[in-house]
């Protein structure tokens, strides 16, 4: 369990990184924290011929530009906890961060790394889909801005082209105060979710003005709950309504069935966790 041979390149600038990635195409991979890529390499499930180390690039900024919060690809997970802009505008994101891996992984794992790895049960891809994030990818050919809903194509497959890498994730800052929560169920703390649900609510009292719900672990990519979101609009959020929203969401997905969890169980969890997450989001108002 040691990696196959590769060539190592430390990029001093984004331009250099992109030109190296362009040169290597399919055979090149950027490496940041390495928390997802290196295990795959050690198991020889991934064998890039060139690694482009992007750790020294200045891609670790969290900044607000107008109505957008931009997070650099190299922002490490543990920073989400100390970022007032996330706490204020993206409570579901903050809530989700608690479920990511273990302390050492949170310290080194990066936002760009997690979403490029695109594990179907990971928290951050789900958060991106939940918040209608835009994934900013760059290559020597320029920048592409990809909506999260189009970025995740399948399990471990993204819209990134060879030579392209994620440089930032942009989250639209909501106009009005939003309430959010994220809950997941995993066999053990820190494991990838069997099901994880994120919810964002805009409320007037108990009445839902706008709702967004997304799920990790059900399908090969994070999924949104269009019908449940629509259903919630204008309704007073009660336990019953939340349950019903969960039912609607569960009916709209086609959960995977694997040796760990059956599709029925996943579907059931979607109902329960959607309902709980909505109630948790609402209670966070207090």
């Amino acid at each position: 369990m040691r990696p196959a041979a590769f060539e190592y390149h430390r990029a001093a600038s984004i331009e250099e990184a992109l030109s190296l990635l362009a040169e290597f195409g399919e055979d090149g991979r950027p490496i940041a924290g390495g928390q997802s890529l290196v295990p795959m390499m050690n198991l020889r499930l991934a064998r890039p011929e060139h690694l482009v180390d992007i750790n020294s690039l200045e891609l670790d900024k969290i900044e607000r530009t107008g109505d957008t919060l931009s997070l650099g690809a190299l922002v490490r997970h543990e920073r989400y906890f100390n970022e007032p802009l996330i706490a204020e505008h993206f409570p579901a994101f903050l809530d989700a961060a608690h479920w990511i891996g273990h302390p050492t992984i949170r310290r080194h794992g990066s936002l760009g790394g997690s979403i490029s790895h695109a594990d179907p049960s990971a928290e951050l891809p789900c958060v991106c889909v939940l918040h209608d994030a835009t994934i900013v990818a760059r290559s020597v050919n320029g920048e592409r801005r990809i909506p999260a809903s189009e970025f995740f194509i399948s399990a471990y497959v993204t819209a990134l082209e060879p030579g392209e890498m994620v440089v930032a994730v942009e989250l639209p800052i909501p106009q009005r105060k939003q309430h959010g929560a994220f809950i997941e169920i995993a066999e053990r703390m820190g494991d990838f979710a069997v099901i994880g649900i994120g919810a964002v609510l805009e409320l007037d009292g108990d009445t839902v003005l706008d709702a967004r719900i997304a799920c990790a672990g059900a399908e090969l990519t994070p999924v949104r709950a269009a019908s449940a979101e629509q259903f919630l609009k204008g309704r007073q959020l009660t336990e019953e309504v939340a349950q019903e929203a969960g039912q609607l969401f569960a009916q709209s997905v086609d959960p995977v069935n694997d040796y760990r969890s059956s599709a029925e169980y996943r579907r059931h969890l979607i109902v329960q966790l959607t309902s709980r997450t909505l109630m948790r989001a609402m209670k966070s108002k207090a």
């Binding site: 390495g34 290196v38 690694l51 050492t104 080194h108």
Partner: peptide
């Protein structure tokens, strides 16, 4: 800072 040395290449 604690880090897993099995997920780190020496050249890094």
């Amino acid at each position: 800072i604690p880090r897993l040395s099995c997920l780190t290449f020496a050249v890094q």
